[in-house]
Design a protein around this nucleic acid. Sequence first.
DNA 1: TGCATTTTTTATGTCGACAAAACCCGGACG
DNA 2: CGTCCGGGTTTTGTCGACATAAAAAATGCA
Lengths: 240, 240
Amino acid sequence: MPTARTKAAKPDGAAGGRKRGSGVKRVYDILRDEILGLQLVPGSMVDEAGLAARFGMSRTPIREALVRLAGEGLITTLPNRSTVVSPLDLLNMAPYFDALVLMYRATTRLAAQRHQAADLMRVRACQAEFAAAVRGQDAMAMIATNAAFHLAIAEAGGNPYFTALFQRLLDEGRRMLRLYYQSYDDQLPQRFVDEHEAMIAAMAARDAEEAERLARLHGEQIVEQIRTLLCGAERLDIAL
Amino acid sequence: MPTARTKAAKPDGAAGGRKRGSGVKRVYDILRDEILGLQLVPGSMVDEAGLAARFGMSRTPIREALVRLAGEGLITTLPNRSTVVSPLDLLNMAPYFDALVLMYRATTRLAAQRHQAADLMRVRACQAEFAAAVRGQDAMAMIATNAAFHLAIAEAGGNPYFTALFQRLLDEGRRMLRLYYQSYDDQLPQRFVDEHEAMIAAMAARDAEEAERLARLHGEQIVEQIRTLLCGAERLDIAL
DNA sequence: TGCATTTTTTATGTCGACAAAACCCGGACG
DNA sequence: CGTCCGGGTTTTGTCGACATAAAAAATGCA
Protein backbone atom coordinates (compact mmCIF):
# COMPACT_ATOMS: atom_id res chain seq x y z
CA MET A 1 0.00 0.00 0.00
CA PRO A 2 1.71 3.20 -1.09
CA THR A 3 0.22 5.30 1.63
CA ALA A 4 3.34 7.19 2.59
CA ARG A 5 2.70 9.79 -0.06
CA THR A 6 3.71 13.11 1.37
CA LYS A 7 5.38 15.35 -1.14
CA ALA A 8 6.99 14.94 -4.53
CA ALA A 9 6.34 11.24 -4.66
CA LYS A 10 6.82 11.25 -8.38
CA PRO A 11 10.37 11.78 -9.53
CA ASP A 12 8.90 12.17 -12.98
CA GLY A 13 6.59 14.42 -11.11
CA ALA A 14 4.56 16.67 -13.34
CA ALA A 15 1.52 16.22 -11.14
CA GLY A 16 2.29 17.58 -7.71
CA GLY A 17 2.45 15.17 -4.80
CA ARG A 18 -1.05 15.64 -3.48
CA LYS A 19 -3.90 13.24 -3.30
CA ARG A 20 -6.13 12.97 -6.27
CA GLY A 21 -9.36 14.68 -5.36
CA SER A 22 -7.92 17.15 -2.87
CA GLY A 23 -6.92 19.96 -5.16
CA VAL A 24 -10.36 21.32 -5.90
CA LYS A 25 -11.51 21.15 -2.31
CA ARG A 26 -8.43 22.92 -1.05
CA VAL A 27 -8.74 25.79 -3.50
CA TYR A 28 -12.46 26.03 -2.86
CA ASP A 29 -12.06 26.19 0.92
CA ILE A 30 -9.23 28.70 0.85
CA LEU A 31 -10.88 31.00 -1.66
CA ARG A 32 -14.16 30.79 0.19
CA ASP A 33 -12.52 31.77 3.45
CA GLU A 34 -10.69 34.62 1.81
CA ILE A 35 -13.85 35.92 0.19
CA LEU A 36 -15.93 35.71 3.35
CA GLY A 37 -13.10 37.19 5.37
CA LEU A 38 -12.88 40.15 3.00
CA GLN A 39 -9.26 39.43 2.28
CA LEU A 40 -10.43 39.31 -1.32
CA VAL A 41 -12.03 42.69 -1.84
CA PRO A 42 -15.55 42.52 -3.27
CA GLY A 43 -15.44 43.54 -6.88
CA SER A 44 -11.80 42.69 -7.37
CA MET A 45 -10.81 40.55 -10.29
CA VAL A 46 -9.97 36.88 -9.95
CA ASP A 47 -7.35 35.56 -12.32
CA GLU A 48 -7.32 31.86 -13.06
CA ALA A 49 -3.72 31.77 -14.20
CA GLY A 50 -2.60 33.63 -11.12
CA LEU A 51 -4.42 31.24 -8.85
CA ALA A 52 -2.98 28.31 -10.75
CA ALA A 53 0.49 29.66 -10.19
CA ARG A 54 -0.23 30.41 -6.56
CA PHE A 55 -1.53 26.95 -5.75
CA GLY A 56 0.92 25.16 -7.99
CA MET A 57 -1.62 23.33 -10.05
CA SER A 58 -3.22 23.52 -13.43
CA ARG A 59 -6.09 25.79 -14.32
CA THR A 60 -8.58 22.94 -14.47
CA PRO A 61 -9.10 22.38 -10.73
CA ILE A 62 -8.99 26.13 -10.17
CA ARG A 63 -11.75 26.51 -12.69
CA GLU A 64 -13.89 23.85 -11.04
CA ALA A 65 -13.54 25.54 -7.68
CA LEU A 66 -14.54 28.85 -9.26
CA VAL A 67 -17.60 27.28 -10.83
CA ARG A 68 -18.68 25.99 -7.45
CA LEU A 69 -18.11 29.36 -5.83
CA ALA A 70 -20.13 30.99 -8.59
CA GLY A 71 -22.90 28.53 -7.87
CA GLU A 72 -23.09 29.91 -4.35
CA GLY A 73 -23.01 33.46 -5.57
CA LEU A 74 -19.66 34.26 -4.00
CA ILE A 75 -18.06 35.16 -7.31
CA THR A 76 -19.60 36.45 -10.49
CA THR A 77 -18.30 35.44 -13.87
CA LEU A 78 -18.84 37.73 -16.81
CA PRO A 79 -19.11 35.73 -20.02
CA ASN A 80 -15.82 35.37 -21.81
CA ARG A 81 -14.33 37.99 -19.63
CA SER A 82 -13.15 38.48 -16.12
CA THR A 83 -14.56 36.82 -13.04
CA VAL A 84 -14.88 39.09 -10.03
CA VAL A 85 -15.55 38.62 -6.36
CA SER A 86 -19.26 39.30 -5.99
CA PRO A 87 -19.77 42.81 -4.67
CA LEU A 88 -21.93 42.97 -1.59
CA ASP A 89 -25.10 44.75 -2.42
CA LEU A 90 -25.72 47.31 0.27
CA LEU A 91 -28.56 49.00 -1.56
CA ASN A 92 -31.44 46.60 -1.40
CA MET A 93 -30.87 44.76 1.82
CA ALA A 94 -34.54 44.53 2.72
CA PRO A 95 -34.93 41.13 1.02
CA TYR A 96 -31.84 39.94 2.80
CA PHE A 97 -33.16 40.93 6.19
CA ASP A 98 -36.56 39.46 5.45
CA ALA A 99 -35.02 36.12 4.58
CA LEU A 100 -32.62 36.24 7.52
CA VAL A 101 -35.30 36.88 10.11
CA LEU A 102 -37.56 34.24 8.62
CA MET A 103 -34.77 31.67 8.78
CA TYR A 104 -34.00 32.69 12.36
CA ARG A 105 -37.60 31.95 13.22
CA ALA A 106 -38.05 28.78 11.21
CA THR A 107 -34.84 27.09 12.28
CA THR A 108 -35.22 27.94 15.94
CA ARG A 109 -38.81 26.75 15.99
CA LEU A 110 -37.93 23.49 14.30
CA ALA A 111 -35.00 22.98 16.63
CA ALA A 112 -37.25 23.43 19.64
CA GLN A 113 -39.56 20.78 18.30
CA ARG A 114 -37.20 18.20 16.91
CA HIS A 115 -33.83 18.55 18.58
CA GLN A 116 -32.04 15.62 20.16
CA ALA A 117 -29.94 15.81 23.27
CA ALA A 118 -26.68 15.77 21.32
CA ASP A 119 -27.84 18.68 19.18
CA LEU A 120 -28.41 20.87 22.18
CA MET A 121 -24.97 20.02 23.49
CA ARG A 122 -23.45 21.24 20.27
CA VAL A 123 -25.51 24.42 20.45
CA ARG A 124 -24.36 25.04 23.98
CA ALA A 125 -20.75 24.51 22.94
CA CYS A 126 -21.13 27.11 20.21
CA GLN A 127 -22.74 29.47 22.67
CA ALA A 128 -19.80 29.03 25.03
CA GLU A 129 -17.41 29.92 22.24
CA PHE A 130 -19.49 32.94 21.34
CA ALA A 131 -19.50 34.10 24.95
CA ALA A 132 -15.74 33.66 25.08
CA ALA A 133 -15.35 35.74 21.95
CA VAL A 134 -17.51 38.45 23.46
CA ARG A 135 -15.48 38.44 26.65
CA GLY A 136 -12.30 38.62 24.59
CA GLN A 137 -13.75 41.48 22.50
CA ASP A 138 -12.65 39.61 19.39
CA ALA A 139 -14.91 40.89 16.64
CA MET A 140 -13.83 38.32 14.08
CA ALA A 141 -14.39 35.44 16.47
CA MET A 142 -17.75 36.89 17.47
CA ILE A 143 -18.93 36.86 13.87
CA ALA A 144 -17.73 33.34 13.22
CA THR A 145 -19.01 31.83 16.46
CA ASN A 146 -22.34 33.60 16.19
CA ALA A 147 -22.85 32.10 12.73
CA ALA A 148 -21.80 28.70 14.03
CA PHE A 149 -24.27 28.99 16.90
CA HIS A 150 -27.25 29.66 14.67
CA LEU A 151 -26.12 27.09 12.16
CA ALA A 152 -25.97 24.50 14.92
CA ILE A 153 -29.55 25.38 15.78
CA ALA A 154 -30.54 24.98 12.15
CA GLU A 155 -28.95 21.57 12.02
CA ALA A 156 -30.77 20.58 15.17
CA GLY A 157 -33.96 21.48 13.33
CA GLY A 158 -33.10 18.89 10.74
CA ASN A 159 -34.40 20.67 7.65
CA PRO A 160 -31.64 20.68 5.03
CA TYR A 161 -33.40 23.24 2.86
CA PHE A 162 -33.56 25.76 5.67
CA THR A 163 -30.03 24.94 6.74
CA ALA A 164 -28.65 25.51 3.25
CA LEU A 165 -30.39 28.84 2.79
CA PHE A 166 -29.51 29.94 6.29
CA GLN A 167 -25.87 29.08 5.79
CA ARG A 168 -25.82 31.08 2.60
CA LEU A 169 -27.42 34.03 4.34
CA LEU A 170 -25.04 33.86 7.26
CA ASP A 171 -22.09 33.62 4.90
CA GLU A 172 -23.19 36.60 2.91
CA GLY A 173 -23.81 38.36 6.20
CA ARG A 174 -20.29 37.72 7.37
CA ARG A 175 -19.02 40.21 4.86
CA MET A 176 -21.53 42.87 5.88
CA LEU A 177 -21.29 42.13 9.58
CA ARG A 178 -17.63 42.94 9.50
CA LEU A 179 -18.56 46.49 8.69
CA TYR A 180 -20.91 46.39 11.62
CA TYR A 181 -18.89 44.71 14.30
CA GLN A 182 -15.85 46.79 13.60
CA SER A 183 -17.61 49.62 15.35
CA TYR A 184 -19.60 47.63 17.86
CA ASP A 185 -20.81 49.01 21.09
CA ASP A 186 -19.72 47.25 24.25
CA GLN A 187 -23.02 46.33 25.78
CA LEU A 188 -24.61 44.97 22.62
CA PRO A 189 -22.65 41.73 22.37
CA GLN A 190 -23.48 40.89 25.95
CA ARG A 191 -27.12 41.39 25.13
CA PHE A 192 -26.76 38.91 22.29
CA VAL A 193 -25.26 36.42 24.70
CA ASP A 194 -28.24 36.77 27.01
CA GLU A 195 -30.68 36.39 24.15
CA HIS A 196 -28.87 33.29 23.01
CA GLU A 197 -29.22 31.85 26.49
CA ALA A 198 -32.93 32.54 26.51
CA MET A 199 -33.31 30.82 23.16
CA ILE A 200 -31.45 27.78 24.41
CA ALA A 201 -33.71 27.61 27.44
CA ALA A 202 -36.83 27.77 25.31
CA MET A 203 -35.55 25.08 23.00
CA ALA A 204 -34.61 22.85 25.94
CA ALA A 205 -38.17 23.26 27.26
CA ARG A 206 -39.44 22.38 23.76
CA ASP A 207 -41.47 25.59 23.80
CA ALA A 208 -41.66 26.19 20.06
CA GLU A 209 -43.74 29.35 20.30
CA GLU A 210 -41.44 31.00 22.78
CA ALA A 211 -38.32 29.90 20.90
CA GLU A 212 -39.63 31.39 17.68
CA ARG A 213 -40.67 34.57 19.42
CA LEU A 214 -37.21 35.02 20.90
CA ALA A 215 -35.54 34.22 17.59
CA ARG A 216 -37.70 36.78 15.89
CA LEU A 217 -36.87 39.47 18.39
CA HIS A 218 -33.21 38.52 18.21
CA GLY A 219 -33.17 38.80 14.44
CA GLU A 220 -35.19 41.98 14.27
CA GLN A 221 -33.01 43.59 16.86
CA ILE A 222 -29.87 42.80 14.90
CA VAL A 223 -31.48 44.10 11.75
CA GLU A 224 -32.44 47.29 13.50
CA GLN A 225 -28.93 47.75 14.85
CA ILE A 226 -27.41 47.40 11.42
CA ARG A 227 -29.98 49.66 9.86
CA THR A 228 -29.36 52.48 12.29
CA LEU A 229 -25.65 52.00 11.87
CA LEU A 230 -25.75 52.14 8.09
CA CYS A 231 -28.30 54.89 7.80
CA GLY A 232 -26.47 56.87 10.41
CA ALA A 233 -27.19 56.55 14.08
CA GLU A 234 -27.84 60.22 14.54
CA ARG A 235 -29.83 61.73 11.75
CA LEU A 236 -29.37 65.28 10.84
CA ASP A 237 -31.19 67.12 13.58
CA ILE A 238 -31.98 70.68 12.72
CA ALA A 239 -34.56 72.64 14.60
CA LEU A 240 -36.35 74.91 12.21
CA MET B 1 -19.18 9.73 -35.31
CA PRO B 2 -20.69 12.81 -33.79
CA THR B 3 -21.46 14.39 -37.12
CA ALA B 4 -25.04 15.28 -36.26
CA ARG B 5 -24.53 18.93 -35.49
CA THR B 6 -27.65 20.70 -34.45
CA LYS B 7 -27.08 23.52 -36.86
CA ALA B 8 -25.69 23.44 -40.33
CA ALA B 9 -21.95 23.21 -40.20
CA LYS B 10 -20.36 26.59 -40.07
CA PRO B 11 -17.74 27.23 -42.70
CA ASP B 12 -15.17 28.20 -40.11
CA GLY B 13 -14.39 24.56 -39.61
CA ALA B 14 -12.63 24.98 -36.30
CA ALA B 15 -13.32 22.77 -33.31
CA GLY B 16 -17.08 22.49 -33.31
CA GLY B 17 -19.00 25.16 -35.13
CA ARG B 18 -20.74 26.66 -32.11
CA LYS B 19 -20.35 29.87 -30.27
CA ARG B 20 -17.81 30.06 -27.57
CA GLY B 21 -19.67 30.11 -24.31
CA SER B 22 -22.69 28.17 -25.46
CA GLY B 23 -21.50 24.63 -24.94
CA VAL B 24 -21.78 24.56 -21.18
CA LYS B 25 -25.14 26.27 -21.11
CA ARG B 26 -26.61 23.95 -23.70
CA VAL B 27 -25.48 20.81 -21.90
CA TYR B 28 -26.62 22.24 -18.58
CA ASP B 29 -30.08 23.13 -19.86
CA ILE B 30 -30.64 19.84 -21.64
CA LEU B 31 -29.43 17.70 -18.77
CA ARG B 32 -31.45 19.71 -16.30
CA ASP B 33 -34.60 19.25 -18.34
CA GLU B 34 -33.96 15.56 -18.70
CA ILE B 35 -33.36 15.14 -15.01
CA LEU B 36 -36.43 17.10 -13.97
CA GLY B 37 -38.51 15.36 -16.62
CA LEU B 38 -37.45 11.98 -15.28
CA GLN B 39 -36.05 11.00 -18.65
CA LEU B 40 -32.87 10.42 -16.70
CA VAL B 41 -33.87 7.93 -14.04
CA PRO B 42 -32.92 8.97 -10.51
CA GLY B 43 -29.99 6.91 -9.38
CA SER B 44 -28.78 6.11 -12.86
CA MET B 45 -25.16 6.67 -13.68
CA VAL B 46 -23.97 9.67 -15.68
CA ASP B 47 -20.96 9.08 -17.86
CA GLU B 48 -18.86 12.06 -18.87
CA ALA B 49 -17.34 10.40 -21.89
CA GLY B 50 -20.72 9.27 -23.12
CA LEU B 51 -22.13 12.76 -22.79
CA ALA B 52 -19.07 14.16 -24.52
CA ALA B 53 -19.69 11.83 -27.44
CA ARG B 54 -23.38 12.58 -27.46
CA PHE B 55 -22.97 16.35 -27.56
CA GLY B 56 -19.97 16.26 -29.82
CA MET B 57 -17.68 18.18 -27.52
CA SER B 58 -14.85 17.57 -25.13
CA ARG B 59 -15.25 16.41 -21.57
CA THR B 60 -14.31 19.79 -20.14
CA PRO B 61 -17.57 21.68 -20.78
CA ILE B 62 -19.52 18.55 -19.86
CA ARG B 63 -17.70 18.49 -16.58
CA GLU B 64 -18.45 22.13 -15.87
CA ALA B 65 -22.12 21.57 -16.52
CA LEU B 66 -22.07 18.60 -14.17
CA VAL B 67 -20.40 20.65 -11.46
CA ARG B 68 -23.14 23.23 -11.73
CA LEU B 69 -25.84 20.59 -11.61
CA ALA B 70 -24.18 19.09 -8.57
CA GLY B 71 -24.23 22.51 -6.96
CA GLU B 72 -28.01 22.50 -7.26
CA GLY B 73 -28.24 18.99 -5.92
CA LEU B 74 -29.57 17.50 -9.12
CA ILE B 75 -26.69 15.08 -9.47
CA THR B 76 -24.45 13.53 -6.85
CA THR B 77 -20.81 12.85 -7.51
CA LEU B 78 -19.07 10.14 -5.55
CA PRO B 79 -15.38 10.93 -5.15
CA ASN B 80 -13.21 9.40 -7.81
CA ARG B 81 -16.05 7.23 -8.95
CA SER B 82 -19.32 7.51 -10.71
CA THR B 83 -21.65 10.48 -10.71
CA VAL B 84 -25.32 9.59 -10.48
CA VAL B 85 -28.59 11.41 -10.93
CA SER B 86 -29.64 12.35 -7.42
CA PRO B 87 -32.26 9.90 -6.21
CA LEU B 88 -35.41 11.54 -4.97
CA ASP B 89 -35.70 10.90 -1.31
CA LEU B 90 -39.22 9.73 -0.66
CA LEU B 91 -38.51 8.75 2.93
CA ASN B 92 -38.09 12.00 4.77
CA MET B 93 -40.27 14.38 2.87
CA ALA B 94 -41.41 16.25 5.96
CA PRO B 95 -38.64 18.83 5.67
CA TYR B 96 -39.43 19.26 2.02
CA PHE B 97 -43.08 19.95 2.71
CA ASP B 98 -42.26 22.29 5.56
CA ALA B 99 -40.02 24.33 3.32
CA LEU B 100 -42.45 24.25 0.43
CA VAL B 101 -45.40 25.49 2.45
CA LEU B 102 -43.32 28.19 4.08
CA MET B 103 -42.17 29.43 0.69
CA TYR B 104 -45.74 29.37 -0.59
CA ARG B 105 -46.70 31.63 2.27
CA ALA B 106 -43.71 33.94 2.21
CA THR B 107 -43.67 34.53 -1.54
CA THR B 108 -47.41 35.08 -1.82
CA ARG B 109 -47.44 37.48 1.09
CA LEU B 110 -44.56 39.46 -0.32
CA ALA B 111 -46.16 39.53 -3.73
CA ALA B 112 -49.37 40.89 -2.26
CA GLN B 113 -47.41 43.68 -0.62
CA ARG B 114 -44.89 44.60 -3.25
CA HIS B 115 -46.13 43.57 -6.68
CA GLN B 116 -46.28 45.96 -9.59
CA ALA B 117 -48.95 45.94 -12.23
CA ALA B 118 -46.75 44.15 -14.76
CA ASP B 119 -46.02 41.38 -12.24
CA LEU B 120 -49.67 40.61 -11.80
CA MET B 121 -50.13 40.44 -15.54
CA ARG B 122 -47.44 37.82 -15.76
CA VAL B 123 -49.05 35.88 -12.94
CA ARG B 124 -52.39 35.98 -14.68
CA ALA B 125 -50.79 34.78 -17.90
CA CYS B 126 -49.31 31.81 -16.07
CA GLN B 127 -52.65 31.10 -14.49
CA ALA B 128 -54.30 31.12 -17.92
CA GLU B 129 -51.76 28.58 -19.15
CA PHE B 130 -52.34 26.45 -16.08
CA ALA B 131 -56.08 26.55 -16.62
CA ALA B 132 -55.57 25.55 -20.23
CA ALA B 133 -53.42 22.63 -19.19
CA VAL B 134 -56.09 21.52 -16.74
CA ARG B 135 -58.77 21.74 -19.39
CA GLY B 136 -56.59 19.76 -21.75
CA GLN B 137 -55.88 17.16 -19.05
CA ASP B 138 -52.19 17.46 -19.85
CA ALA B 139 -50.43 16.33 -16.70
CA MET B 140 -46.96 17.40 -17.84
CA ALA B 141 -48.16 20.85 -18.80
CA MET B 142 -50.03 21.14 -15.52
CA ILE B 143 -46.86 20.50 -13.57
CA ALA B 144 -44.81 22.94 -15.58
CA THR B 145 -47.38 25.73 -15.66
CA ASN B 146 -48.18 25.36 -11.99
CA ALA B 147 -44.52 25.79 -11.12
CA ALA B 148 -44.30 28.78 -13.46
CA PHE B 149 -47.34 30.32 -11.79
CA HIS B 150 -45.91 30.16 -8.31
CA LEU B 151 -42.50 31.22 -9.52
CA ALA B 152 -44.06 34.29 -11.12
CA ILE B 153 -45.61 35.11 -7.78
CA ALA B 154 -42.24 34.71 -6.10
CA GLU B 155 -40.63 37.08 -8.58
CA ALA B 156 -43.39 39.58 -7.99
CA GLY B 157 -42.43 39.42 -4.33
CA GLY B 158 -38.96 40.57 -5.26
CA ASN B 159 -36.94 38.55 -2.77
CA PRO B 160 -34.22 36.70 -4.67
CA TYR B 161 -33.40 34.45 -1.70
CA PHE B 162 -36.95 33.19 -1.48
CA THR B 163 -37.20 32.90 -5.24
CA ALA B 164 -34.05 30.80 -5.47
CA LEU B 165 -35.08 28.41 -2.72
CA PHE B 166 -38.60 28.20 -4.07
CA GLN B 167 -37.37 27.41 -7.55
CA ARG B 168 -35.19 24.67 -6.19
CA LEU B 169 -38.10 23.23 -4.24
CA LEU B 170 -40.42 23.40 -7.22
CA ASP B 171 -37.81 21.76 -9.41
CA GLU B 172 -37.24 18.97 -6.98
CA GLY B 173 -41.00 18.69 -6.69
CA ARG B 174 -41.42 18.29 -10.41
CA ARG B 175 -39.90 14.84 -10.17
CA MET B 176 -42.15 13.79 -7.31
CA LEU B 177 -45.22 15.50 -8.70
CA ARG B 178 -45.00 13.37 -11.79
CA LEU B 179 -45.71 10.36 -9.64
CA TYR B 180 -48.67 12.21 -8.23
CA TYR B 181 -50.21 13.76 -11.30
CA GLN B 182 -49.98 10.58 -13.28
CA SER B 183 -52.89 9.27 -11.25
CA TYR B 184 -54.68 12.52 -10.64
CA ASP B 185 -58.32 12.78 -9.89
CA ASP B 186 -60.41 14.92 -12.21
CA GLN B 187 -61.88 17.43 -9.81
CA LEU B 188 -58.62 18.22 -8.01
CA PRO B 189 -56.93 20.23 -10.75
CA GLN B 190 -60.02 22.39 -11.14
CA ARG B 191 -59.89 23.05 -7.43
CA PHE B 192 -56.32 24.23 -7.81
CA VAL B 193 -57.42 26.58 -10.56
CA ASP B 194 -60.03 28.10 -8.27
CA GLU B 195 -57.56 28.46 -5.44
CA HIS B 196 -55.13 30.17 -7.76
CA GLU B 197 -57.83 32.62 -8.75
CA ALA B 198 -58.56 33.41 -5.14
CA MET B 199 -54.87 34.02 -4.49
CA ILE B 200 -54.67 36.38 -7.45
CA ALA B 201 -57.68 38.30 -6.16
CA ALA B 202 -56.16 38.67 -2.71
CA MET B 203 -52.87 39.85 -4.15
CA ALA B 204 -54.61 42.33 -6.42
CA ALA B 205 -56.42 43.70 -3.36
CA ARG B 206 -53.04 43.89 -1.61
CA ASP B 207 -54.51 41.87 1.24
CA ALA B 208 -51.33 40.28 2.53
CA GLU B 209 -52.99 38.38 5.36
CA GLU B 210 -55.61 36.81 3.13
CA ALA B 211 -53.09 36.02 0.39
CA GLU B 212 -50.84 34.24 2.84
CA ARG B 213 -53.77 32.37 4.36
CA LEU B 214 -54.86 31.14 0.94
CA ALA B 215 -51.32 30.19 -0.02
CA ARG B 216 -50.98 28.24 3.20
CA LEU B 217 -54.20 26.34 2.63
CA HIS B 218 -53.22 25.75 -0.97
CA GLY B 219 -49.86 24.33 -0.01
CA GLU B 220 -51.14 22.27 2.88
CA GLN B 221 -53.85 20.81 0.71
CA ILE B 222 -51.35 19.73 -1.93
CA VAL B 223 -49.15 18.24 0.75
CA GLU B 224 -52.09 16.34 2.17
CA GLN B 225 -53.07 15.04 -1.26
CA ILE B 226 -49.60 13.72 -1.92
CA ARG B 227 -49.34 12.23 1.53
CA THR B 228 -52.55 10.28 1.24
CA LEU B 229 -51.53 9.18 -2.22
CA LEU B 230 -48.13 7.94 -1.15
CA CYS B 231 -49.18 6.41 2.11
CA GLY B 232 -52.15 4.77 0.47
CA ALA B 233 -55.46 6.50 0.06
CA GLU B 234 -57.40 3.89 1.94
CA ARG B 235 -55.72 2.76 5.07
CA LEU B 236 -56.23 -0.70 6.35
CA ASP B 237 -59.70 -0.53 7.86
CA ILE B 238 -60.51 -3.46 10.09
CA ALA B 239 -63.41 -3.40 12.50
CA LEU B 240 -62.46 -5.28 15.61
C1' DT C 1 -16.29 -24.90 -4.85
C1' DG C 2 -15.16 -20.85 -2.54
C1' DC C 3 -12.25 -17.17 -1.22
C1' DA C 4 -8.03 -14.10 -1.46
C1' DT C 5 -5.02 -11.79 -4.63
C1' DT C 6 -3.58 -9.93 -8.84
C1' DT C 7 -4.56 -8.03 -13.30
C1' DT C 8 -7.40 -5.65 -16.40
C1' DT C 9 -10.67 -2.28 -17.35
C1' DT C 10 -13.12 1.78 -17.04
C1' DA C 11 -14.10 6.39 -15.66
C1' DT C 12 -12.36 10.28 -13.37
C1' DG C 13 -8.88 14.05 -11.95
C1' DT C 14 -5.34 16.76 -13.83
C1' DC C 15 -2.32 18.65 -17.22
C1' DG C 16 -0.30 21.46 -21.02
C1' DA C 17 -1.61 23.56 -25.25
C1' DC C 18 -4.43 25.93 -28.69
C1' DA C 19 -8.05 29.07 -30.30
C1' DA C 20 -11.39 32.64 -29.78
C1' DA C 21 -13.30 36.68 -27.60
C1' DA C 22 -12.73 41.04 -25.22
C1' DC C 23 -9.65 44.75 -23.78
C1' DC C 24 -5.67 48.19 -24.80
C1' DC C 25 -3.67 51.31 -27.65
C1' DG C 26 -2.19 53.76 -31.43
C1' DG C 27 -3.45 55.87 -35.80
C1' DA C 28 -6.42 57.43 -39.55
C1' DC C 29 -10.34 59.98 -40.76
C1' DG C 30 -14.32 62.97 -40.55
C1' DC D 1 -11.26 67.30 -31.36
C1' DG D 2 -13.80 63.24 -31.21
C1' DT D 3 -14.74 58.77 -33.27
C1' DC D 4 -13.91 54.60 -35.55
C1' DC D 5 -10.76 50.96 -37.02
C1' DG D 6 -6.94 47.57 -36.86
C1' DG D 7 -3.18 45.15 -34.54
C1' DG D 8 -1.30 43.34 -30.26
C1' DT D 9 -2.22 41.52 -25.69
C1' DT D 10 -4.49 39.15 -22.22
C1' DT D 11 -7.65 36.01 -20.35
C1' DT D 12 -10.94 32.65 -20.91
C1' DG D 13 -13.21 28.41 -23.17
C1' DT D 14 -12.18 24.09 -25.19
C1' DC D 15 -9.44 20.21 -26.55
C1' DG D 16 -6.79 15.81 -26.56
C1' DA D 17 -3.84 13.19 -23.66
C1' DC D 18 -1.96 11.11 -19.49
C1' DA D 19 -2.03 9.44 -14.65
C1' DT D 20 -4.63 7.30 -11.11
C1' DA D 21 -8.29 5.35 -8.18
C1' DA D 22 -11.81 2.11 -7.78
C1' DA D 23 -14.60 -1.58 -9.68
C1' DA D 24 -14.72 -5.75 -12.49
C1' DA D 25 -12.56 -9.68 -14.15
C1' DA D 26 -9.16 -13.17 -13.97
C1' DT D 27 -6.07 -16.03 -11.58
C1' DG D 28 -4.29 -18.95 -7.95
C1' DC D 29 -4.76 -21.65 -3.84
C1' DA D 30 -6.95 -24.26 -0.06
